[in-house]
Design a protein around this nucleic acid. Structure first.
Lengths: 224, 224
DNA sequence: TTAGTGCGGAGCAATTTGCTCCGCACACTG
DNA sequence: CAGTGTGCGGAGCAAATTGCTCCGCACTAA
């Protein structure tokens, strides 16, 4: 059979290709989130550490890459809502959902629920997830965790709002891993503050140590 | 004296010029906030409803316009911190400061405190204001309004984070005033949620009616 | 050696950029 | 009615940037 010709070496090669591909998608999401739909393909390829040839062998055009990212983003949202819905404590599930979605960058490529206006069956699936999300919000209200006057739309807008972070985006560009981690941690505190604002009851503690003052100034070092 | 030659007509003309100038600055701030330092001068002039000639008669280059905006932004911050410091209730003063600064767009052109790294005397003035701001935060802690584990840097980062709003920016572009007002109101709720998270005590009510679901979808109408 | 595979990036036509500069509209003067 | 001063819009230009193609290279398997 033909399949028996596949050597171990070929498999290793395919694995490397797959890793390459993932780096490309991850970089593309970051750059598109930062620069919008008009991000340059050069910037994306460079951020992924690959050549343009590699990019264009996988995606026929910049638009195709963008649309692929939209689909992946939608899939992540579907999965995250399902996970949250399965959590025994709806309020905890909702909090986890917000944190995970903000850090993934939901709503940075396009407003959440955008795909509702895309061709079915994606659209149908998306709207089903919307209903699940609203049901989760209702249960979080009912269990007394989520403050009563906050709507599902409020939360979607909040995720969108926190997804783009000038702090994280600008510091990522400096390319220093330690600083990037600090910036992410600082944003985690902001998320926690916002979640505290969503809660009906008094706070939980803020995560991690307070952010350093240098986060405000580091971004103004000359771009390398 | 020479001044007596100035006619009423000339004064009216100067007033119109001034109005024009302000429209330019306002538009420039919006566009720079949205597109970053690489916003095009065309986009700025168009957004202000003026020709390129008008722009370049006032500012020698795009960079000069940008720097002017930075200075203005710094002045606004100085004034706002002073006002907040004068408020009899430090916690209320701080809340007002956050709301005002977010809606002005503090930190959207550059991180807050950026000007500390600019030439004096601007730098000296800026660092003096920093101290005032930190003192205000301390007093807000002491009076029991602000939760204890939130730092001044947390708040600066929060202002920066909320200043850029994909919702408001994208909906503004549609050019429908009613919708824009709704988007702004929706963001006000997010600000209130965040302020609730900053508070040591239970919430105040969220302002305005809940945001409509169409805020999530309206942005996807074709760009005119 | 030969064939196959995936890669980086120089190069290309087309668009966009920052900026200049000219002609126009308008009110006032002689 | 010219003449003059002033502020304006936007066509136009050189230069930079864009999306995308395509060729030569490194490496493996036979």
């Amino acid at each position: 059979m033909a399949g028996m010709n596949v050597s171990k070496r070929q498999l290793a090669r395919q694995a490397e290709v797959a890793r390459n591909d993932e780096a490309l998608l991850r970089a593309a999401r970051r750059v598109f989130a930062r620069d919008g739909e008009r991000a340059s393909v050069n910037a994306i390829a460079e951020a992924a550490g690959v050549g343009m040839g590699t990019l264009y062998r996988r995606y026929s055009s910049k638009a195709a890459l963008y649309e692929r990212l939209l689909v992946l983003s939608n899939e992540q949202w579907n999965a995250a809502v399902q996970t949250a819905a399965d959590h025994p404590d709806p309020w905890q599930g909702l909090q986890d959902l917000v944190i995970e979605s903000v850090e993934y960058g939901q709503g940075t490529l396009a407003p959440l629920r955008k795909l509702t206006s895309l061709p079915p069956p994606t659209a149908d699936l998306a709207s089903a997830v919307d209903r699940d999300f609203e049901a989760l919000v209702d249960r979080a209200h009912a269990c007394g965790g989520l403050r009563g006057d906050v709507t599902a739309t409020d939360i979607l807008l909040l995720i969108e709002q926190l997804g783009r972070s000038p702090l994280v985006e600008q510091i990522e560009e400096l390319g220093e891993d330690a600083l990037t981690a600090e910036a992410r941690a600082a944003r985690r505190r902001l998320i926690a503050i916002a979640l505290g604002g969503l809660a009906a009851a008094p706070h939980t503690d803020l995560p991690g140590p307070p952010p350093g003052h240098h986060l405000l100034t580091a971004r103004w070092r000359a771009v390398s």
